[in-house]
Design a protein around this nucleic acid. Sequence first.
DNA 1: ATGTCGTAACGTTTACGA
Length: 260
Amino acid sequence: MKIASYNINGIKARLPALTDWLQEAAPDVALLQEIKSVDENFPRDHFSDLGYNVETHGQKSFNGVAILSKLPLEDVVRGLPGDEADDQARWIEATVTGDKRAVRLCNLYLPNGNPAPGPKYDYKLGWMERLRARARELLAAEDCALMAGDYNIIPQDEDAASPEKWREDALALLASRDAFRRILNLGFTDALRARTPAPGHYTFWDFQRGAWQRNDGIRIDHFLLTPQAADLLSDCQIDAEIRGREKPSDHVPIWIELDA
DNA sequence: ATGTCGTAACGTTTACGA
C-alpha cells in the first residue's frame, strides 16, 4: 500500500500539478494539506473520475485537509480532539483496509507558529499537546496506524540546508523540537529517518529567494508510524523533482510503502 | 527589491498567512 502526504498550498491553483503527480505516482492514498477550500468547493468529482474516494475537512481561505483513497475510507473523524473552541481545519482521520491489514490514517496540518513568541506560537504548542494525547491513544490501541502531514517542524539541524537561518523560527525553536520529540519518544518511527540516515533530504523550499534553485530546503513533512505500522514499512521517499515543474507547491510529496 | 505565492474582497489593489 502506497501512502503519500502532500501539502498542495491551494487545491484550485494546484489542480493540474496535483493531477499529473497523482497519475504518475499512483498512490493508493494521498493525504493532502492546505487545500484552502470549503468542502463544497473541493473538486470531488475530478478525483472520483481518477478512481479516488474523497473525504475533506476544509474551511474558507486557509488550512484544510483531505484524503484521497483508491480503497474505501471508513470511520472518518474530522478535527483534532481536545479543544471545542478550535475551528481551524487541520486534522482528519480514516481507516483503509489492505489485503492483509487495516491502517488508521491520521492526516495533519500542524500550525506554523510564527511569529514566535506570541499567540500563534502558543497555539502551535497547545495543538502539539493535543496531538500527543491522540498519539498516545493510537499507541494504546496497538493498531497499524500513522500520523502524517505537514508538521511545520524541522526535527534536527541536519534537516535544513541552512540551519542557522531557522534557529529563531517557530519551525526549529528548541521548544518546537522538544514537543515533536516528546511525541516521537512515545514510540513512533519517523519513516524517512528509518530508511534514509543521510542529511540533505528536504520536503519544502520557500518560494522566495530562489530557495529551490539553491537547494535551500527543509524537511518538515513527516510520516510517524506506530510499531505495528513500522514493522510493515518497506520504503519511504520524497518526490523532490516535482518542485521544479510548472506552478509547483512550495512542498513536495513524501510517501511510504507499507506491506499492509 | 521584507525579493513569492494563494486566497479573499468595498478587487485592476491591498491584506493576510505562509
